[in-house]
Simulated assay, not measured.
Amino acid sequence: MRSRLAWEDLWPLLLDGTLDTLYMVGLAALFTVIIGLPLGVLLFLTRRDGVLPAPKLNQVIGSVVNVGRSLPFIVLLIALIPFTRLIVGTTLGSTAAVVPITIGAFPFFARVVENALDEVDKGRIEAILSMGGNVWHIIGKVLLPEALPALLAGITLTVVMLIGFSSMAGVIGGGGLGDLAIRYGYQRFNDQVMIGTVVILVVMVQLVQSMGDRLVRRLAHRR
């Protein structure tokens, strides 16, 4: 039997779900960049032909990143339940969902960073080295500034992916729009909630993508 909600009851549910989703995505995006950015830089620097060649370290980091990228997120959600409980103290709610979302996203972002740094002109790196510059000079004055447009495009792509991850986290009670869609939409056969969550998620993705594209174009134009 299908149930319907009055607008005054539906609106608060959608608002709370949207705020929870924004909280999850924002926090997970922050941690994903904090973890994924240095990993991506390390992957680039420790190649055999890199500035700091360390093939064994590169292989270890690459293997961790590849394993993280190969696992379906829904499997990762379930597999990380004990770890999430250890870190947060619970597996329910938006804060708990940030843990598997971040772990599922940072390997992807690390590869995005590595590919973005690949586009930097190698001549600039050699110029810094010839002037006596060290690794920190290369990272701070060449790699990150030159790759900034590509990095911003990668962050945009990652945030869009995080929105999808946050929705799937609703399967294990992660809160947000995904949890709302499952509990009130799917389980109670409420089309209003299902349509409302889908519309909000689509709008979120469109806004993030358009804002990210605008920033990337602005940076590329300045260069």
Rank of each mutant, 00 (worst) to 15 (best):
R2W: 11
W11Q: 05
L14R: 03
L15T: 14
D16R: 15
T18K: 00
L30T: 12
F31E: 00
V33M: 01
I34L: 15
P38A: 09
L45E: 03
R47L: 07
D49G: 12
P53R: 04
N58S: 14
G62H: 04
G62A: 06
V64D: 13
V67S: 02
S70F: 00
P82A: 11
P82Y: 13
L86D: 15
I87W: 05
V88A: 11
A97W: 07
P100R: 08
T102N: 03
I103N: 02
P107G: 09
F108W: 00
R111L: 14
E114H: 09
E119V: 10
I125M: 03
E126G: 11
A127W: 05
I128F: 09
M131H: 08
G132Y: 09
W136D: 12
V142E: 09
E146K: 02
L151H: 01
A153V: 01
G154C: 00
L157C: 07
I172Y: 14
G174V: 13
G174T: 11
G185I: 03
Y186N: 03
Y186M: 09
Y186R: 07
D191K: 10
V193I: 14
M194Y: 13
G196H: 00
V199Q: 06
L201N: 10
V205A: 07
Q209A: 03
S210V: 03
G212N: 12
D213C: 00
D213T: 01
